[in-house]
């Protein structure tokens, strides 16, 4: 389709095949335009990602995405399935390294330091950028050992008292302490789904990361457990920078300050969450959040 890209001051002339947009938005951008709109960059960012491309073999999963992640805020990444948002998230702590045939290009910096630099130790990077996964994945160990796992491998605690303190603090921050304080020696796999996910969050924050990545952390949970996790994310924002991938637009609206909309590997629009959900600038974003696509 050879649509003409219009300048913003002139009304959009559409070809007859596309039905006119009914919502009253001053959309002046074509659906075929994949240039990012909105405020991708912030002042004083924690992480800067520039021109990130990800390839699986010959296939390109992420196309030239640039954005910043600011300090002490939650960035939500939304988009239809297969749009590359999880892949993008996994670039941030180099989890894509574990996938055969996955190649990342571009410039990703954490506090000005290139995280793909050959001299950088991926182990220490991942201790600075924690991750919570889609499905709760506690280790088949006791609740205590699950939380203590990270501090142990990084040698954070020197003695038992320190370790106890880390475990208690992490579980408390994750809002799980009151539920598990009497059974720390029982297996983490015996908890309910929501508790397991909060245990995984506790495990991630036990190593005192600067950034926490969450890959659809509530998609396997019921609404009540989801509400608890969302509450927790809101509290964690005071201490950590959080990037969250989610399928639920309500969730993105509830927990995040900035939202990025991905579409087939392109970052289509990014901006303040309020603005994105009330006044999207790109027609694809609007299609998605009004439920016409996705």
């Amino acid at each position: 389709m050879d649509t003409i890209i219009e300048s913003s001051s002139v009304g959009l002339i559409k070809p007859g095949v596309i039905e006119p947009i009914k919502v009253e938005v001053q959309n002046t951008i074509s659906r075929d335009d994949r240039t990012t709109v909105g405020e991708a960059f912030v002042d004083d960012p924690r992480m800067t990602l520039r021109n990130v491309n990800v390839f699986y073999g010959a296939e390109q999963a992420i196309m030239d995405v640039s954005l910043d992640i600011g300090k002490r805020q939650v960035v939500a990444m939304i988009g239809p399935s297969g749009c590359g948002k999880s892949t993008f998230l996994r670039c941030i702590n180099r989890m894509n390294d574990t996938i055969d045939g996955c190649r990342v290009t571009g410039d990703i910096k954490l506090d000005g330091e290139d995280i793909y630099h050959p001299d950088l130790d991926v182990v220490s990077l991942r201790s600075r950028i924690g991750m919570v996964f889609q499905k709760p994945n506690p280790f088949p160990k006791s609740i205590y050992d699950n939380v203590a796992y990270g501090p142990r491998i990084h040698g954070i605690a020197t003695n038992k008292t320190d370790m106890d303190e880390i475990v208690v603090t992490s579980l408390t921050k994750a809002g799980l302490w009151n539920e598990v304080k009497d059974r720390l020696d029982q297996p983490g796999t015996g908890l309910s789904g929501g508790q397991q996910q909060r245990l995984c969050i506790a495990r991630a924050i036990a190593v005192n990361p600067e950034i926490v990545l969450m890959d659809e952390p509530c998609s396997a949970l019921d609404p009540i457990a989801t509400a608890k996790i969302e509450e927790l994310i809101d509290e964690l924002r005071e201490q950590y920078t959080i990037a969250i991938v989610t399928h639920s637009m309500q969730q993105a609206a509830r927990v995040s300050q900035r939202t990025a909309y991905f579409h087939l590997g392109d970052l289509i629009e990014i901006g303040d969450t309020d603005q994105i959900f009330t006044n999207p600038r790109h027609p694809l974003t609007e299609d998605y959040i009004t439920g016409r696509f996705g």
Partner: peptide
């Protein structure tokens, strides 16, 4: 997911 969980913690 067990491996991912562990790698994600910097193991």
């Amino acid at each position: 997911s067990m491996r991912d969980g562990s790698y994600g913690l910097g193991a």
